[in-house]
Every structure is written in C-alpha cells, then in structure tokens.
Design a protein around this nucleic acid. Structure first.
Lengths: 319, 319
DNA sequence: ATGAAAGCGCTAACAT
DNA sequence: ATGTTAGCGCTTTCAT
C-alpha cells in the first residue's frame, strides 16, 4: 500500500505540497518521528534521519511555517517599524539591520508608519497580532513618548528603539549620544581656530536636534566662541533661509546630519558662495564629505553599526 | 457561571491574551458566531455583533494571525527580496513600495540577499515556507536568469521583478525601458550641440548597463556623434579611471545613474576639473542634479512610482 | 441567526 | 528510538 501511495505522490508532486504526515505515511513511521528527524533531534536513529531527509528532498518538502509558528506561539520573526526611507542615513542603517537578522536566522516584517504617529500605533497592534518575537522601532517625527509601546512590553515582546528615539524607561535604545557627538564635532571647528560658528539643525521638534544643539552650545560656551543656531524646518527651503543671513560673519559651520549637509552645500553652490572660505564640520557617515568636493570634516556616525547593534540588543533580550 | 468567568478574566486581562473562544464563553455563544461577528458577516444580528465587538474591545482581543493564516492557507503578506539598500535609487523605490502595500493592507516580509545569488535562492525557498501571497524581487547583481523563480511559479505564487530585472517569460517585470531612456537622455546632449560624448555605465555584467549602452550607441550613431563608453566596475576607483583619460576631448558626458553621477562629480571636483566646461546628462530621480550645484540635465526615473506599480501588478495577479 | 464539528500542519508531553 | 495523543486558534461547511 505504501508503495502505491509513494508512486501516486511521485506523480503528483508538482501540484501537491508534501507535509510531514505524507512523509510519515510513505515511510510507515509516525509524524512525530519525521518532525524530530527533520529537526535533527538527538534521539532519532541516524538511519531514520537519513531516510526522512532523503524523502523530504525527493518530494521537495516545504515546511509550513504558519503551522509551526501557530503551534509554537513564536515566530523567529521580528518587526521593523519604519517611518520612511530617506537617502542619507536609513540605507546604511537597514543594511546593518538586515545583515544582522540574516546572520541570526531571523525574518523581518516591515511596517511603514509614513512618519505618522497614528500609523505607528496601528503598526504596534499589528506586531501583537503577528506574534513577532521582537520589535525594532524607528520613531516617527510625531512621536513624543513611549506610551504606545506599553502594550508590547506588557506582552513581553522585547522592543529596541533605534536612531530616532524618544526617552524611555521601558525599553532599550540604540542611538548615538547626541550631546557628545555634537560637542566633539563642533570642537573640530573650534580647534581649527573658528571664532564665529553657525550651527545648523533639523527641526527643533526633534529630540535629536535639541540634544545636539545642547552639545554645540556647550562646546562654544566652554571655548567662549560666538554661536548662532539655525533650525531647518524643510530642506527645500534651505536656500531661502541662508539667503536671509549674512554668512560672511561666520568662519565655521556645524551641520548636524548628512541630510542638512547635502542640501546646504547645494544651496551654497546655487547662491555662488565660495565654500572654501569657510570651515564645515558635520555629523556624517562619511560618504558625502568625501564626495562633495571640499574639505569637510566629520565625526563618523555609522548607520550600519547601529542597525547591527539594534538586532543584537533585541536578541539579547530573547533569553 | 459566565459572570464569574467574566469577572475572573477581567482581573487577569493584563496577562492573558483573549481568544475568540474566550469571548464566546463569556457571551454564551458559539465561537463561530464570534468569528463571524468580528468579520462583519452578514447573517449575524447587529445586536450580537455589538456585544461581541464590545467584549473584544473591553478585553483587548488581538487576533492570532498565524492561526488565521494557517487555517486559510494564505497570509495577506508579500515577500520583498532585496539585494542591498543603496542611497541612490532604493530609498524612493522602497517608499513607493511600502506606501502601496500599506494602502492595500498587505504586510511585507523582507529577505535580504546581500547581492548574492545563493542567498537569493534561499530567500525564494523561504517565501514558499512562509506561504506569502506574492513576491517582489530586486535581482542581485549575480542573477543572470529566472530559473530559480520556477518554484514560485509552480506554486502559483505571483512574482514581480522590480528595477534590477532579468529577462523572463514566466513573470512580470516593472522596470524602466533602458534602451529608450538612455536614448532620450543622450539626445539631450546631442540636441544641445555636443559632438563628442563620453558615456559612463555601471559594470557591463549588468543587463541594465548593456541595454542603456545600446540606447546611447543608437542615439550617437543616428546623429553621427563621436562616442566613447566607459564602464565603472567600482565607484571608489572612478577617480583613477577618469584621470587616465583626456577629458578635454569631450563636450558632453552621459551618465547612466544617480550613483555614477554622484561619484563622478565627486571625482571631477577632486581633480579640479571645471565641470562648467562640459555638459552632463543623467538618468536620475532628480534630487542629485538639483543639488550638485551645476546645470545637470536629466531624464526623470521615478523609483517611487516603480515601487508603487510593482505592488499594483502583484495585486492584479491575486484575482 | 446561530450551533456543532471538523481540521488546517505541526510539535511536545507522555507513553512504550 | 519510536508511537500515541492532544491541541494551538481559527474558519467554514453543514445542520438546525
């Protein structure tokens, strides 16, 4: 009888997805034995393992992960909540993150918040439904606190805040120490002899901007350097912003990110400002400074590393 | 008795995840009724629906998607196979793609191939295990044909090739018509009076480079313009490449992508070449040309739109 | 309009 | 080393 089934299945293997039960029938063993064999469980004879694996291979057995996850109530899958993909920092961040998840056999489900708090909250609900093993979240620009993360913590799902973070007691963060890096970056200008610095930040609504601003302020205060701060609310209007200013009074510009740097340099070129007349120092992953054609100092801020670390931190919490 | 259960559950709602069965018990109805009510099935009384929804809300019912997917043998989830995330085209592509999936209530599982064919093949196996409803794949640089996609097609899982594609009869592609866009882009230079053109491409190993090269060749041949082709195998060595050339003999440069454009301009600046002396025309999404500080013509190549379209094409195949 | 019952594929106690 | 059994939570057919 098994022979017949075997032959029949062989004929239909192009349409039928083989299950563990099918394999069990064919080999006249119990499904649990097959399951154990495939999982390389120690107390299955190597002979049985061989037969099972051969058969699975033969009939192109594909495990049904939903059945497995359902049964196990876990999923080797993590969620990534992403506000948007910009060209400056996100790419290296994602490369680091995906590399780390692949290394650890984790799958990533992406939920896209469009930089919108409501959507971010919805994404968190989805994480619960999906029974993900962990969540990495890059907060939207609208996110001000971690209250919506409570549900995840309650459900014992580890959470790591990445890059754009909010202050939180209930979950870990992987981000740069904004104050320090800005402080150091600004000091590059100061050490090079700048006496009057223009510092450019993203919108003051972002925690990141505020913290970096404090670092810059501290650096300038300590060295008694004249400082003017500018917040760029919208990169497309950066040209207008700098045109209203008298740039000649500055001998150094601090720039808080690659994004601002990119648009700043574009704007300066369009108004034919001679960039060689001024020193620029930026917080950057290094690609832009090397390719914009000027001496631009930078403090290295590695997205790749951060993405990689975030996954590691998450895994550490799996216990 | 139900009252007691109700009260008990209420006390423990912070630790217990409520299921449909729990709700059914509490309301003394059948689980199937609850399931139907939550799905807004037509022949459930509105009174019952109200009660069920109220209770679900009350106890923070979270559906178990793995159970549902397991049962239904489908998942409202698609896979994205991604070679890597670069800063030039991928961000807008991903934004378009994620926006479209969110609009359509689909989740995205990302598999990362690290530009590696073996990993790409493994990812395809994973797609089968995951029982995804469809697959969007951006081919790795190593991918030369669609043979590994056969398994997906056999399993009736729709596949859309995106951006970096290979020729395929078995699945759809969403990509630019390389020949045409390169032809048009090169003609911009010709129409502006260029007589001697340098054309810069990515590695000749890529189908995309070959096709765009043909477009450029055709444009130049038709107008009887002198043409020299260069392939950039590695962007970091672009400076060396152009230093070995006599750029003064060209009056126009065609550039096949934002990535090449970015590094080309960086290199030209580093060797203090006066970019205003030459016309540049690129295939680009437009951000770079507007911010590099020179007149750079471009033919617009929208990643966002392509990402969005790819999802649409996939959904069209769900039927 | 609702209930009863079966089963998706898998794994882990618990037997033997 | 292998078999038996039960059940994860959900949906759907069929019955009432």
């Amino acid at each position: 009888v098994e022979k017949i089934i075997f032959t029949l299945l062989k004929q239909f293997d192009f349409m039928k997805r083989i299950t563990i039960i099918d394999i069990a029938k064919m080999l006249s063993v119990n499904p649990s034995t097959v399951s154990r064999a495939l999982a390389d469980h120690k107390d299955v004879s190597s002979e049985t393992k061989r037969k099972v694996r051969e058969c699975a291979e033969q009939f192109n057995y594909i495990p049904n992960l939903h059945a497995r996850f359902f049964r196990l109530k876990k999923s080797t899958q993590i969620a990534l909540i992403l506000p948007e993909v910009n060209m400056f920092f996100t790419p290296s961040l994602l490369n680091g993150l995906y590399a780390a998840t692949e290394e650890n056999g984790l799958s990533v489900v992406v939920f896209y918040s469009s930089n919108n708090l409501i959507r971010e909250q919805e994404s968190i609900k989805k994480c619960l439904s999906w029974a993900v093993d962990g969540v990495i979240i890059i907060c939207s620009d609208e996110t001000k606190d971690d209250s919506h993360l409570q549900d995840l913590v309650k459900a014992h799902i580890p959470v790591v805040l990445l890059d754009k973070v909010v202050d939180s007691d209930i979950c870990q963060s992987v981000t740069i120490v904004d104050f320090d890096i800005a402080f150091n970056c600004c000091n590059i200008l100061i050490n090079k002899g700048c006496k009057s610095i223009l510092a450019m930040f993203s919108s003051a609504r972002f925690l990141m901007s505020q913290k970096r601003k404090k670092g810059v302020n501290e650096a300038c205060t300590r060295s008694n350097i004249s400082l003017e701060n500018v917040h760029i609310e919208d990169v497309s209007s950066i040209e207008k912003t700098i045109m209203t200013m008298d740039l000649s009074k500055f001998d150094g510009i601090f720039v808080m990110s690659d994004e601002i740097l990119f648009y700043l340099v574009g704007a300066l070129r369009r108004i034919h400002f001679d960039i060689n007349k001024i020193k620029i120092s930026a917080i950057s992953d290094g690609i832009l400074p090397k390719n914009l054609g000027f001496d631009i100092d930078f403090v290295h801020h590695s997205g790749y590393e951060m993405g990689h670390t975030a996954v590691q931190r998450l895994i550490d919490q799996f216990t």
